[in-house]
Design a protein around this nucleic acid. Sequence first.
DNA 1: CTGCCGACTTGTCGATAGGGAG
DNA 2: CTCCCTATCGACAAGTCGGCAG
Length: 601
Amino acid sequence: EHDKKAKKRKHEYEEDEEDELLGSVFFFSVMGCVLLFVVFRWEEERYTDGSKWRFLEHKGPVFAPPYEPLPDKVKFYYDGKPMKLSAPAEEVTTFFSKMLDHEYTTKDIFRKNFFKDWRKEMTSEEKSKITDLNKCNFSEMSEYFKTQSEARKQMSKEEKQKIKEENERLLQEYGFCIMDNHKERIGNFRIEPPGLFRGRGDHPKMGMLKRRIRPEDIIINCSKDSKQPKPPPGTKWKEVRHDNKVTWLASWTENIQGSIKYIMLNPSSRIKGEKDWQKYETARRLKKCVDRIRTQYRDDWKSKEMRIRQRAVALYFIDKLALRAGNEKEEGETADTVGCCSLRVEHIKLYPKMDDQEYVVEFDFLGKDSIRYYNKIPVEKRVFKNLQLFLENKQPEDDLFDRLNTSILNKHLQELMDGLTAKVFRTYNASITLQQQLKELTCPDDSVPAKILSYNRANRAVAILCNHQRAPPKTFEKSMQNLQTKIDEKQNQLSAARKQLKAAKADRKASRDEKSKKTVEVKRKAVQRIEEQLMKLQVQATDREENKQIALGTSKLNYLDPRISVAWCKKFGIPIEKIYNKTQREKFAWAIDMAEKDYEF
DNA sequence: CTGCCGACTTGTCGATAGGGAG
DNA sequence: CTCCCTATCGACAAGTCGGCAG
């Protein structure tokens, strides 16, 4: 009954945006029996007026511990002479000295930004004395921190246990909130401590001081009828508001980019889970009309209007290559990275012929997080001709799509399908690829580890599509070697076990007694077990090798409809724990509950 | 239309907990 | 039980996208 109910509700969710309201527990009386229905959270009411909750209560954020001045024996030297710094100036030097081992502290921009911000924290006296970063010697401080972290590692079990308990206490007190009728885990209830901003890639602001956040910087969001969080003694919140049109519990403005940071709920929460579900439903709606959209953009390649041609070619890239939309960015504020709409002439090369292929486009640019996207793909002639046209009379630093931006593109997409935006294509193509690859790669007769290898390969296909690369782990070669050693050992074990089996068989032939018969059985089992272990190790080695430069996590967490994986597990009898770890199972609880083995994305 | 803001998702990476081998 | 190693998790950065004012 419950399944039926769940399916019905699923149906309603997918087909009908106007949903009736339900409570969390139902009582039905059938033939004198009282039946109780527990309704899962993701099947509960959703608000239709844009509000996200009715009741919200929490304890506010946890602040970074205050600065502890260095012991007097640890000295900072300027121009070879020891110098005692004021606490604010000293704190900033500790950030720098902790980073001394990193290459980026040698970079000009980093040093320049750091020095500029450091000087702002100095007293006027310090300011007039300290004028050259190169004359600063932080090595004693650096040594001190290294010793400290060594000491932390050497702490006794009891001390470590104490710290753990304290963390647990903090988690219990501040890590949860009540939203509507549920206790929910908060994602990041700790305020980021001050430090030096690093940024990714070639960031113009690297080295700047990320300042300490105080209660006076924090806006609290909770419901009027809740017990409001108390600021630390002697302080005040910047503001307490009661805005139930948003999901965050607290926010503050960060000083590097001037952007707002939020405290929000954990992915396991109702509010995040529902949104996630919705995202995949939008992608599934795209599945239904993607053919039509593809026909249309191919048609648009022939348009009389330049802007339409550009739009159509960009959309083709977004669809075929799973590129990101590519918003414009303020120059000099962030690293120079691009997405589809912000591609520049210098980022592509056209080859009318390359090897045995025609109309090849070579992409080479830095995308999100300054991860390089490099790809050579043959495109259709019409796309190629259009690209040549777009490139005419342009400089390398000019925009490839000068008549297009993400806002124009998304407005167009919105007209093609309700809720359609550029990023939906990434979700759609990722999920459909997983489903199709799983179909292709899974052999029903394979062992469980072999099936999991197939799953990872399907996952890998998606990660490659989305360009989720990673730097090979520093210990990669070594751990590969270790694994190989293990495999070799297993192989030796196996041949030894086989020899023993053979001997046992011979013995049985000779003596024909019960005992020798038993020995044969035991030895046979041993061989079998070792064979299995060997196979497992070999599969593991293959998997790891293929995964060297590819990160599976991001696509698994953000792009793959979890119901595909759940259905696959059910279909092939794979325990879900083999695919999703604990955190992931919590995040995807909605999918685990609702997907059957015949689920189709 | 443009720039900016606000909210929310997506992304990488390093620290570390805890599981398994010896 | 200890040590080693890796999977996991949190930190925090960097995207997307919609809305609004001028």
